[in-house]
């Protein structure tokens, strides 16, 4: 298979599944940054191996498998605590069953949205966090949309992800009566994502269309 075809395939998977893959990995570990690192490694592995080996039948499952192994390695290096042990066991079983039987792995993006827009997260970080983790918009682009320096934006995102992990903000869809209050935070953040998409339309990038329509779909 030619390199450009595989690259196109990888790009398609990245566009279609990035947020779902992040949400799936983060919901089980409680660690958004760890999930991003692991998935980044998985994409690098795909760029290296798919041109030679061909695009796997289930590219998402393949990426998930590699990312899961990276997270296991990372957790081992960090002296496994009880929490991550449970996680490792859980994710190993789930990833195995996803790879073996299911066409699709569970969609946890809604939970990820509720985490990004959790009231315990700095309000100014909520929408950027959502854009980065759920929609896969890169930090530099987010920074320019929010008129802050890339360094400041990165720092804000890192701080938010650390809080998610360290304060153990749970990946869950709240139940009533909490739901009503929490949904308003999510909608505010999605609305901000939506306007970012429109304002940047002049910049020609077609992914912004996708950004707005994905914001609509998730809303």
């Amino acid at each position: 298979m030619s390199e450009s075809v595989t690259h196109a395939a990888i790009e398609t998977v990245a566009q279609d599944s990035y947020g779902r893959l992040i949400a799936y990995l983060a919901a089980r570990s409680g660690d958004v940054a760890g999930a991003e690192d692991a998935l980044g490694d998985a994409f690098i592995a795909a760029l290296r191996r798919w041109p030679a080996e061909g695009v796997p039948e289930k590219p998402e499952a393949w990426l998930l498998h590699v990312a899961r192994n990276r997270m296991i390695d990372a957790a081992r290096r960090k002296q496994v605590q009880q929490k991550s042990e449970t996680f490792l066991q859980q994710i190993t079983e789930e990833a195995a069953s996803v790879a073996a039987t299911q066409e699709y792995f569970p969609d946890e993006r809604l939970k990820l949205l509720f985490v990004c827009a959790h009231p315990a997260i700095d309000p100014s970080a909520q929408t950027p966090l959502m854009l980065q983790t759920v929609l896969g918009v890169d930090a530099a682009r987010i920074a320019s949309a929010f008129l802050v320096s890339p360094a400041a934006m990165s720092q804000q995102l890192v701080r938010a992800k650390n809080k998610i992990r360290d304060a153990a903000i749970p990946f869950r869809v709240p139940e009533p009566p909490e739901l009503e209050e929490r949904v308003s935070f999510v909608l505010d953040a999605i609305y901000a994502a939506y306007t970012t998409g429109w304002e940047s339309l002049m910049e020609t990038a077609s992914t912004h269309h996708a950004l707005a329509s994905e914001a609509i779909a998730l809303g």
Binding site: A168, P170, P174
Partner: peptide
């Protein structure tokens, strides 16, 4: 408790 929401 299990997580931040429970603590809150």
């Amino acid at each position: 408790v299990p997580n931040l929401d429970a603590a809150l």
